[in-house]
Design a protein around this nucleic acid. Structure first.
Lengths: 251, 251
DNA sequence: CCAAAAGTGTTCGAAATACACCCATGT
DNA sequence: ACATGGGTGTATTTCGAACACTTTTGG
């Protein structure tokens, strides 16, 4: 993968990469999709390079699709990272040896890369992590349990979550993070997880329904302990309308 | 300028630029600092390239300093632009002829540039527009009267203002846009100008003072028509503290 | 003396918060 | 039967929106 990019480096925007923070939600846990290559002990954000004939947003979509198989996903650029030293450590001879890349060509890879951060919200259950080649491991990691990441990827992840928290005040969230049918407590746990604090059940219900993007289904969740919670779905039209027009409230 | 960059293109991050939207405020008008090169009829945002040994944030600071002479300015990255066609038009033979750049070297310049947008808030009266060389004109233009800009610079400008409006809900604004001493009505006009709508005087006073960043001076503005308004200044410590901790309200 | 802008307080309604009881289900 | 989580309503407080009169000053 890396070798093929370096061999075809003429076709890629030099010194520029994209890193994606892919959020999922499962078991009341905020998850992050991370990758690990066999030559490294550390995890990394899934990322890639930008073909010269592709818009950066499109390149991000491609990366996301490549790692998750998903399409039509909520994807948002949040920040660009470009300190001089950000990928200094990345240029290790080990990596080049591993990929059998001559030192001369490795210079392309060794230079400072400016990386554009995107974050995505995806449906955990519909996501099939797709490693590129047998040297790669792709896995969902609990956000609480994210280990050290390569380079400044931890910083990028933190900034993504910070942005998501802020955008929670501006756009409704959940459409891509939850399955088709979900319960209010599930949605609330999602909000609580993103925000990192508890919310009052009754007030949450009032606020979230007031937005007018939920459809109460005539159906209850089955096979659950205790009282069966009602199922809801998003009213897709209204949801998209609110995404466009913005939310005028905060949490 | 451009020629010297192309001659030294090894020292710059390839395919990457920075564009700054520099806001000022004067005569109750939101102003934008724009530049025009003699070979072009169109205005542009002040921008530049990124030295390989400089952090992108630092490069933005340098560009800002170069065009305004100002330092220690409120400067914030807001978005990165990178559609394939964004600077297609920029590669005109006219430009290369003008700068006496051989076509071969011009290719560097012709490729797609991804540009990182920064916006700055500066004190209009302390800003001395500084053209780089005699081919450049640097001028404050009323935001209302901004003409067509080159490439996607209009889009970048719009996005900057949109971000600024949003950030008005998160951070206090004014420290860099107003002179040392100012009146509440002036501050209010600044807010109204950024937001593009009128605010109620009494409610504005209550809200802005509640933030606790203003110091009422024992001094009135002199030589003004009608009732002399009180002068205020920012409490720099508290101002910075609020910038750090964020504002928990909205307009 | 009058026009034009500055200063100041109160009322009202909406929204956020805090809070308690009943209901359904699996064990 | 009981423990656990789900569903619902109300009272209180807080915050933003609307609003009118008086004061000062230059012309």
């Amino acid at each position: 993968m890396l070798k093929s990019i370096i061999d075809n480096r003429e076709n890629y925007q030099p010194g520029l990469s994209i890193d994606c923070v892919i959020f999922g939600f499962h078991d009341n846990q905020l998850k992050v999709l991370l990758i690990k290559t066999k030559h490294s002990e550390e995890w990394a954000l899934p990322g890639g390079f930008v073909p010269v004939d592709e818009d950066i947003d499109q390149a991000a979509v491609s990366i996301l699709h490549g790692r998750t198989g998903l399409e039509g996903i909520f994807l948002r650029q949040f920040s660009t990272f470009g300190t001089v030293k950000r990928n200094q450590d990345h240029f290790s001879n080990k990596v080049l040896e591993f990929y059998e890349i001559p030192l001369e060509e490795g210079k392309w890879y060794a230079s400072r890369f400016v990386t554009i951060g995107y974050y995505a919200l995806v449906d955990f259950l519909q996501t099939v992590p797709q490693p590129e080649g047998k040297n790669e491991i792709v896995e969902w990691i609990d956000h609480d349990a994210v280990p050290d990441l390569i380079l400044d990827h931890k910083e990028i992840l933190d900034k993504a979550l910070e942005t998501l928290r802020m955008e929670l005040n501006l756009i409704p969230v959940g459409y891509n993070l939850l399955p088709e049918k979900f319960t209010i407590p599930e949605l609330q746990k999602l909000y609580e997880t993103i925000l990192g604090r508890k919310l009052d059940r009754r007030n949450f219900l009032r606020k979230i329904t007031a937005i007018g993007i939920l459809t109460k289904l005539d159906e209850k969740k089955s096979n659950v302990a205790h009282k069966a919670p009602n199922l809801y779905s998003f009213d897709r039209d209204k949801y998209n309308e609110v995404v466009r027009n913005g939310l005028h409230q905060g949490w």
